[in-house]
Design a protein around this nucleic acid. Structure first.
Lengths: 249, 249
DNA sequence: GCTCTTTGTGTCATTTTAACACTTTCAAAT
DNA sequence: ATTTGAAAGTGTTAAAATGACACAAAGAGC
């Protein structure tokens, strides 16, 4: 009988726990984050996509759900950053009133579990004016403020990404299937936020054996066309499993 | 007025969020974890110390509180691992009945936020039979099972510790103020779970400039007495702040 | 003074890193 | 057809880091 009650509760939101996603995308030039906007009194205000979890839902499931509800994408690289739970996280008045409009219990103490995810930007171009909430890609470095404690979460996400990319070749999730080494190079520079020597970078990547050069070349570019590469899943998996200490740039 | 209500709620436990602590200690030979025991039908069952959070409490505060309630220790190194929230985490029958006995809402969906902490074992020796719950240091490698999802949490804690110790010199939190290089050496071997060449280890540590050799030597040991060292806070802080990429063993 | 146990130390061959500049290839413009 | 602009691609060298390896020194206990 207790079980029955729980089953009925299946579709109930847990008022105390939410997930928020820091969704990174790379436009071949810089790192971007997908944010949703709300129109407030003081102009546009950005927030990370997120929502309360359902009572019978895994945290990872909830994050995937939020991601899919927003972008329609499935099977996306997603990793937990951690829990954020300052009881005073809703300090700004604008945050308060926003919550009033979307939550059944706007004053509840909420712990949020943050995730970061890596998507290929080509896979999702937000429509300029979609229905409920409109989303937008914003360059990471241009973001100075976000709702709630989302700016802190973003900072954590950035540093976690920085850390992870030195340990595992997750950067590939941000690139299309075929890419050039220059694009990969630029990607690493964007994430690590510092210039990397071109020749040393290429040497290091190639020695890892995680990229395979294709027969194909770029075309239509007004300069020497670049070799295209794919990444070598077998070696990649091996490396991610064995831990792979040394990607140190 | 809303505020008043919140104030009254200050002492209320949030039924949906708990913290659990993986408390590591080093006995100069191997890594240990502090677990609390419960007597069940099927013999002794260990669990990580943890509890529900209060509604007005920071997560970090809650973890510190749990740690202090159990050991009396304050200002301990503590770092969040992440949130664990399998809705089926209470699958074992023994877990269920235990919860019945300690929680007001034993069936509630609980998200737990896990922390790992590093303490000097000399600072806390659990009394063989303290009052409510008795705690015990158990060698990490001997732990095969824990209540709830605590075993998963322990695994995460171990791998996080492995990771962190390569990036920051946090190992010092596990040693007394004065220690020998052999002790430090053994500590690293225990955490990384592999042998490290003695001379190469010493070379590397010394080059980092985070240890200062004291004038003092070990005494009373039936072999050549070892030089004692302290760690150099200034250099340590510098290194932890600047990120410090390369501790790679 | 002999034994046991742990400390403490140096070298060398190999690998890894960082710094650095010029030629090639294509498209577009003239 | 030739020129121009823009990014691709490529190798060497000096310095630093790594990993492998063995033996003498110091004290306690007998």
């Amino acid at each position: 009988m207790r079980k029955e009650i729980k089953k009925n509760a299946a579709l109930e939101l847990n008022p105390n726990v939410s997930v928020d996603c820091v969704i990174f995308g790379f436009d071949f030039d810089k790192l971007n984050v997908l944010v949703i906007n709300r129109d407030g009194a003081a102009g546009v205000q950005w927030a990370l996509p997120g929502n309360l979890i359902y009572d019978d839902e895994h945290l990872d499931q909830a994050a995937n759900r939020v991601l899919e509800e927003l972008t329609g994408l499935q099977n996306i690289y997603l990793e937990q950053i951690g829990a954020f739970g300052d009881p005073n996280r809703i300090s700004k008045e604008s945050d308060r009133s926003w919550l009033q409009s979307i939550r059944a219990q706007p004053e509840a103490r909420v712990i949020t579990v943050a995730y970061f995810s890596l998507v290929k930007m080509e896979d999702y171009q937000p429509q300029p004016s979609s229905f409920a909430k409109s989303a937008e890609w914003i360059p990471v470095n241009e973001i100075k403020e976000l709702a709630f404690d989302h700016f802190d979460i973003l900072q954590s996400a950035k540093s976690r990404l920085k850390q992870m990319i030195k340990i595992r070749p997750i950067g590939f999730n941000l690139l299309p299937e075929k890419f050039t080494l220059s694009q990969l190079h630029k990607l690493y520079e964007s994430i690590l936020d510092k210039p990397l020597d071109k020749r040393n970078f290429r040497r290091k990547i190639q020695k890892l054996n995680i990229v395979m050069s294709l027969e194909e070349k770029q075309s239509g570019v007004p300069h020497k066309p670049s070799q295209l590469f794919m990444f070598d899943k077998e070696h990649y998996l091996q490396l991610t499993q064995n831990g792979f200490d040394n990607f140190g740039f």
